[in-house]
Amino acid sequence: MAKSPTSFRYDYAQSPPVDQVGIAERAARFTTRSIKTSTKREGLDMVLNMIDLTTLEGADTPRKVQQLCYKAGHLHDSIPGLPTTAAVCVYPPFVKVARKALGSNSPIKIASVATGFPSGHLTLEGKLEETQRAVADGADEVDMVISRGRFLSGDYEYVFDEIAAVKEACGKARLKVILETGELATLDNVRRASDIAMHAGADFIKTSTGKISSAATIPVTLVMLLAIRDYHFKSGNMVGMKPAGGISKSKLALHYLVMVKETLGSEWLSNEWFRFGASSLANDVLMQIAKIESGGDYQSPCYFSQD
């Protein structure tokens, strides 16, 4: 589903107010949904297939990235028929390594963080260059960060223009825009940042870098999903959503799917439109699936490869 470039500027005053307590109440309702039997198994497969398997550490090495790439395609070979993850997510210098490890026809996408991740404190030229290089090295997707300092000081024009410029630099690669919601302080800001990002051309909006204490939460994700729904209603364009950081348990991941289904509809329930940015979630899901496959035996992490 191709997306037409946005030709109009976003009126920053248009973002509606958000009531945090109301959002929290609605968010709590998603977590009371009880996901059982076939729905659970189907959901767990979906979750695996929506994961951007991630390594974003200063200590990353080519070997670590190779391991990650293998794991993305072979999550747990003793259970046949498991999906792969949606993507691997790495720092720009490892895109080439990942491309080599996955090959050119892999269904697993390569996502590269860019634009001075995680702080975003880099010159615009540097950001664009980094983006272009990642794409040239084989990245299918670029996860950029917005300039939160500029956003918080009210310079929305700057934030908009920067996203639009990075989008252009992406070429065919899909752009995920990280809002780093933990630094935005209010849900009103999350909403406004989501609107700006989508109008500036984001293919996905993403909650967090995973590098600060407050990462993805159900309430924050709900605000972003509502923004996506409104944007879709107004423009006809679908935008994807990626909560990242802090989602490490299957049960929580399933509640995210409940939220997506009830807020955006089941059209969004595929990895084209929804991703989890996570590193340890996959193994928890695998343990759940293994439990179901074994007829209910509780599992131990020792039997599931970490990398």
């Binding site: 945090q20 939160r148 919601t181 630094e183 302080a185 209010t186 849900l187 924050v220």
Partner: peptide, 12 residues
């Protein structure tokens, strides 16, 4: 309602 801000803040 009484709002609660998103906890967090940058500690990169």
């Amino acid at each position: 309602p009484i709002e609660t801000s998103i906890a967090g803040g940058g500690k990169y």
